[in-house]
Computed example of a mutant assay.
Amino acid sequence: MLFSEPVQRGDDALKFLLTEAELSYPYCKATLRKGDFGRNRPVSHYPQKDGGPPGLTYPENASVSHGEDGGHAESAGLISPLSRDAKSTILFGCLFKEHTTETIDVETARKTFRTLTKVLKPGLDAFFQIERHKAQMRIQDALLSSIASPSVLMTRDKVLLGHAASGLEKLLATGSVRFKAPRFEFRNKQLEAGLQHVVDTFAGNTHTALQHGHTEAPADQSGDQSVWFEDPKGQLKRITIKAVPATGTSRNGGSAPWLILKIFETSELPEALETVLQERFELSYSEAHLARHLTMSGSMNDTVQELGITKNTAKTHLRRIFDKTGVNTQLQLAKLVHGLSSLF
């Protein structure tokens, strides 16, 4: 680093360079080290010794630090932020270690520094443009396997990366999350726990996964999770959570993965499913008919209107369905029926 002791001022100088300093301006090492940068003034605004050009000479009364910097505490130096975005700042500095502020040729040093920054800047811009393009390609590749269903791709920190087939709209409609760009806020504890389980399983942390209330491993041992719940309108929804490696990560690599959430809504189920329910669980025709339609609609009120029966009749059928199938809730019944639908 081009500035050294005292540490507190060094930290302030770094913060200034990372967040406030003018891009591509050559800031003087000594000025930064002194801590005289609070008003975000470039070094040209400071009085210079002997009327010389700004940039390398020490401001009046600046103290020289003799910290552990390789014996170059008195060497002249320049540093400049070349690029800055929300996540990072690129700093470029030159330490003219063969010279002190008394021996440096200021004009030559400044000219050399500016030439180097002019050469570096286009290369950095091209590099970041390529990286942004690569990132978009990785996002598209991750979503490609889910393109047929509404899906959302996010980071472990719940930052939205992309979505497909109106996935963002569908996810928000479930009422399970809120979105304040660029981050999601989970409102459904079951969904939050499922997401944590997938992350833990991806990292190979089975013990942590069990602590989050998941006592059974998924059938495919991948750690993928399915969460079932009702939306604000009482419609049944299912969200699957799958982990995919983010940039430069792999399973058991210790890095947080990306997460794909796929949203499934009730859909048309084959009529032949009712025959299976009758034969497998000894449901009556009316009970099997109700079980199929209730699973498709996700709403008892809609099912009653569609079948033209009373609520009392529907409740009687549902109670018998629960007894015969061994389930206890409408959600468990939906899982059972959807599982049988995969036979067709």
Rank of each mutant, 00 (worst) to 15 (best):
G194V: 10
N252W: 07
L95A: 13
G167C: 12
I239C: 13
Y285H: 12
H212K: 14
F281G: 02
A272F: 05
I309K: 13
Y25N: 03
G254E: 04
T115R: 15
D157G: 04
E271L: 09
T249Y: 00
E185R: 15
C94F: 08
A142E: 00
E107N: 11
S4H: 11
V159N: 13
V199I: 15
T174E: 12
I79M: 15
E230C: 01
A165Q: 14
I260R: 00
A272P: 01
L171E: 03
K15R: 15
T206I: 11
E306V: 08
E169F: 11
T31S: 13
R41T: 07
G123H: 14
Q332R: 06
L336D: 08
I260P: 09
L56W: 12
T101H: 12
S297V: 00
I79N: 11
G339C: 04
T155Q: 11
I321C: 08
L116E: 09
R183K: 14
D69M: 12
E185M: 10
L171I: 12
N61I: 01
F202I: 04
A135G: 08
G77C: 08
D69W: 15
E216W: 03
G35L: 06
G175H: 01
L18I: 15
M296D: 03
M1S: 11
G223N: 06
T31P: 02
V276P: 12
D224P: 07
S75D: 09
G162Y: 13
D12T: 11
M1L: 11
A173I: 09
L82T: 07
A243W: 07
H163R: 14
H338A: 00
I79C: 05
N205M: 01
T310V: 08
A291K: 03
L294T: 02
Q221E: 10
S151K: 10
A219F: 06
G234R: 04
D11T: 05
P42I: 09
L143M: 10
A173H: 12
L290M: 09
P257Y: 08
A86F: 11
L95E: 15
L32H: 14
R156C: 08
K237C: 10
A173G: 05
A86S: 13
L153H: 12
H45R: 07
P218D: 12
E287Q: 14
N61V: 00
A76H: 10
Q330I: 00
Q211T: 02
